[in-house]
Design a binder for these strands. Structure first.
Lengths: 213, 213
DNA sequence: GTCTATAGCTGGATAGAC
DNA sequence: GTCTATCCAGCTATAGAC
């Protein structure tokens, strides 16, 4: 090799920080105009470079979305992993739910990029996606401490939280019409799981089959 | 007037059916490639006309989306308004939930157009939107028959159903991983509302304030 | 109402000099 | 790595003949 390792580190650090600066500008842009407002021309202008320069740091526009996804997923994982104040398992679950919902509603564009599939033909790479899946394990952990281990209950949990977030961002952006229901929703959910039989969902009578196409 | 009324009806009928044929083609296109795949060139090709002809029937691309929205909203209202088999109020609510979720999951593009805001700068007109709001009144009606009248419970209900739909279409399209939880979700919800005090959500202890930014 | 032809714009991506 | 200049594709929408 013709370079010392410190020279290599220097250059790689500069390259990394230039990439991060571009991503900063990308997020600014997206926060103002939504995910679809990201264009390479506008991004280059904000980052103080020209379009071809962007291709020195990213292979394509999708690669930029992927890097943005990776940053969002890391933020998500870090926020969820922050320590909780000591409390009983039920209050812990409420805190966890608050964090999840607050994380999602505090940045709608980030939420859409992470959890909805709104960009045509974009799929996050496995590396970018990894932190997000690790975080789902955390949810299972907190549910488990409440004695909730049934897979269908985990699914019901994700549906409940996701529904609150979705209604909040779609119908009352910036407000708290649905986020203020979190505690009640968790109470409802926990009470149900504690009373439900472990194997089958409770059914008092057969459902209206005629309506289930 | 120089035309008889029957001549006028004739022409208006022809015009209406031509519009409907274009909308049929638009829905075919969208079902195959998603909402964003609608382009006027492709639409014209499928409808057997050329691009300028589309402008003889619609003022703009957004006007086409609006007409599609109107049709979807009407389908939604009609499906929800179909009579239910006689049953008790609880089973009625389950049937209602099944219909809502099945309607949404059976046509993802239609669901996205109706309930998510994924098309840039598109807002449905008041006329197109009207059937959808009327249908929300139906949900309140069925909840009311179960003694559920609190506004916050109505919000919790919409979040719960919307969450099931969202998880289903996002993470298990074509499957039933979340739709099969409908009955259990309704049971949980109804039991909670019956036991909850009418004015305030139940809280055994104060929440972890440190986590509520 | 329907066509041919095209305007006018915006987008992602690249060639090649420096 | 960064620039100037440009290509090429896609889109909505319109002008004007028939």
């Amino acid at each position: 090799m013709s370079k010392t390792s410190s020279e290599t580190d220097w250059r790689e650090d500069r390259r990394r920080s230039a990439r991060e600066a571009i991503l900063d500008a990308a997020w600014d842009l997206v926060h103002e105009g939504g995910l679809a407002a990201l264009t390479l021309r506008e991004l280059a202008g904000r980052a103080g470079v020209t379009t071809p320069t962007l291709y020195a740091y990213f292979d394509s526009k999708h690669a930029i979305y992927d890097a943005m996804f990776g940053r969002a997923a890391t933020e998500f994982a870090e926020r969820i992993a922050e320590p909780y104040e000591p409390s009983d398992s039920s209050a812990l679950l409420v805190s966890h739910a608050h964090r999840f919902v607050e994380f999602c509603t505090s940045d709608v564009a980030r939420y859409q990029l992470l959890f909805q599939r709104t960009i045509p033909d974009f799929e996050p790479s496995a590396e970018s996606y990894a932190p997000a899946v690790r975080t789902l394990e955390a949810a299972r952990e907190y549910l488990g401490r409440n004695g909730i281990t049934e897979p269908r209950h985990v699914d019901l949990w994700t549906a409940l939280l996701n529904g609150l977030v979705d209604q909040q961002v779609a119908n009352d952006p910036g407000g708290d019409r649905w986020t203020r229901l979190i505690e009640e929703a968790v109470t409802m959910f926990v009470a149900h799981c504690r009373s439900a039989p472990p194997d089958r969902p409770p059914r008092s009578k057969s459902p209206n089959k005629g309506d289930q196409r």
